[in-house]
Computed example of a mutant assay.
Amino acid sequence: MGEFRRLRRALAMAGSVIMLALGGVLVAEPAQACACGGAVSAEGEALTVDREVAALAWDGSTEDIVMQLDMITDADDAAVIIPTPSEPEVQLAETSFFDELAEMAAPRVEDTFTWWPQWEDIGPADGAGAAEPTGGVEVLDTVPLGPLEASVLSATDADGLTDWLREHEYVMSDPLADALTPYITEGWYFVAIRMVAEEGTLNGEVQPVHLSFPASSLIYPMRISAAAEVTQHVSTYVLADGQVRHSDPTGTSEPGELRYAGPVDESLQTSPTWDQLAAAGDYLTVIDHVFDDPAEQITSDFTFASAPDAADYQQVVQVTRMREIAGLTAGPVLLVLGLAAVVVAVLVGRRLLPAGDGAARLGPSAGPVGARPEQHYSAPR
Rank of each mutant, 00 (worst) to 15 (best):
A279I: 01
D275V: 00
P332I: 00
I224D: 02
V333P: 01
T84A: 05
P249Q: 11
L352S: 15
V336P: 07
A57E: 00
T303V: 05
E103M: 15
D74W: 00
I287W: 00
I219M: 12
Q68N: 14
A54D: 05
S86K: 07
P208L: 12
D248M: 04
S247A: 09
Y170K: 11
E149T: 13
H246S: 12
I65A: 12
W188L: 08
I82K: 00
Q243A: 00
V139S: 10
S300C: 03
L101E: 11
T112A: 08
V171I: 12
L20M: 07
R350E: 13
V53N: 10
M104S: 07
S154L: 08
S306P: 08
E266R: 05
G281H: 03
P272R: 08
E3P: 07
A261N: 02
R381P: 15
M322I: 12
T273A: 04
Q68I: 09
D59I: 00
Y377F: 15
D293C: 07
I65G: 11
D77M: 07
F213R: 01
G251W: 04
F304N: 06
G327D: 02
I224P: 03
L328R: 10
V209I: 12
E266H: 09
Q318E: 14
Q297T: 13
D265H: 05
Q243W: 01
P124I: 10
A278I: 00
P354S: 04
A33G: 15
V49R: 04
R108I: 07
M71S: 09
D288I: 03
E167D: 14
P107V: 13
V264C: 03
A131E: 06
A57N: 02
Q68D: 12
P30L: 02
S378F: 05
S235G: 10
L165M: 13
D50A: 13
A371S: 11
S61V: 02
L101S: 10
L258R: 08
R194E: 14
D293E: 14
V230T: 15
V209Y: 05
G187I: 06
L26D: 12
T73E: 02
G60W: 01
E52I: 06
T231F: 04
E138L: 14
E254G: 10
G370I: 01
N203S: 15
M195W: 09
R8K: 10
A21R: 03
D312A: 14
M195V: 14
D163A: 09
A128L: 12
Y237H: 06
M322S: 14
L47T: 08
Q243V: 01
E324C: 04
A78M: 12
